[in-house]
Design a protein around this nucleic acid. Structure first.
Lengths: 189, 189
DNA sequence: ATCTTTTTTTACCAATTGGTTACTTATTGT
DNA sequence: ACAATAAGTAACCAATTGGTAAAAAAAGAT
């Protein structure tokens, strides 16, 4: 039939993701994306459409990749604080490696598409539900709900602090101490 | 001597701040800033230098304004959880009105000046110290330190979630519930 | 080998980016 | 009234933005 591409789509997506995570959607230019992938502009447009569609593809891929790992963590039996610890431990290395595209994008909400925002919202709700499932064995319903939300905000806060070399440290320690405290104090709940 | 300006610097700074908070540093163009202020490009450059210097001015002003209110809250006697509640309550309305320039900027760390980043880092450390002062009466030193960090991450997380209409709610409630729990459980600490 | 199909390259596009220059207009102290 | 000085206007700058058109290069099927 015809010539075949001399790049691998998955590899390219991985490289594009890195650029978007570093600079965000709006601040990333096509030139940045071309530099990182080594591909030329037309190839990128052929493969992904335009910048917005490209970002949605990258976001979809990023979310799908994370969801797999995180669902595994959150559904480990028995449900409980240990799973939450493993969740934050996973995030700690994941953020250090790659940052958090969701947090970054939420802060860029004024610039990204409604569709992207909706994907992010759904992803957040999924994480909150996973946290809730693993708090419920330990706490009263209302409190479990509140704590799930607080742990979600902690996740986003850690993602943000990871951007500063000066503030990156101690976050995993802090959340683990908080989980210790909750675990120890929740007996009566 | 000479003609006087027909704008008020403080007003202009306020308007510029609003634009930067909505779109972030990099995504905000000089055209956006001219539109919002009604000033023309030359007047802006005369007053602030260039875009980077302008942003540093805005950031300095923003931090100074917040610090005043927050220091008042954090030094209210007696120190304790009540001050922390008031802190989050203050943030809740402040974020709803104006968002959080610091959180946004931290997520844009790849684009803003080192000087801006350093101002933000210092500001974060100040907030963490204020939180620590008000946890110390209640908790052991190590735990107080960890919790201060966790509450700082919660603050950043709330700032981020405020960007999504769908996730904006319940955050103040959640942190208050967490503070309830800490207060009730810390007696033995 | 050649024809067809697809990828890749190159050159190009108008619009926008942050920033400047030269000029006009206003104001104030004398 | 007037010179001195500053503020405001508008046109302009090269570089970069996201995106396209047309031609060139490569590879599979026959």
């Amino acid at each position: 039939m015809a010539r075949n591409k001399n790049y691998n789509r998955a590899d390219v997506i991985e490289q594009l993701t890195q650029v978007f995570i570093e600079k965000g959607y709006e601040s990333t230019s096509m030139a940045d994306l071309m530099d990182k992938t080594g591909l030329n502009k037309k190839s990128l447009y052929n493969e992904f459409g335009n910048k917005e569609a490209m970002f949605e593809t990258i976001l979809t891929n990023f979310i799908a990749g994370q969801r797999a790992s995180i669902q595994t963590i959150f559904t480990q039996q028995p449900l409980g604080i240990t799973n939450i610890r493993n969740f934050f431990s996973y995030l700690d290395t994941s953020f250090a490696d790659k940052g958090c595209l969701l947090t970054l994008s939420l802060n860029e909400s004024a610039c990204i598409s409604g569709q992207s925002l909706e994907m992010i919202n759904q992803s957040m709700k999924g994480l909150e539900a996973g946290l809730l499932d693993n708090l419920s064995p330990l706490l009263k319903t209302d409190r479990a709900k509140s704590f799930a939300r607080s742990l979600l905000t902690i996740m986003l806060g850690i993602a943000t602090l990871t951007r500063s070399a000066e503030l990156r440290a101690n976050n995993l320690q802090a959340v683990n101490d908080l989980l210790d405290f909750i675990e120890a104090s929740a007996k009566a709940d």
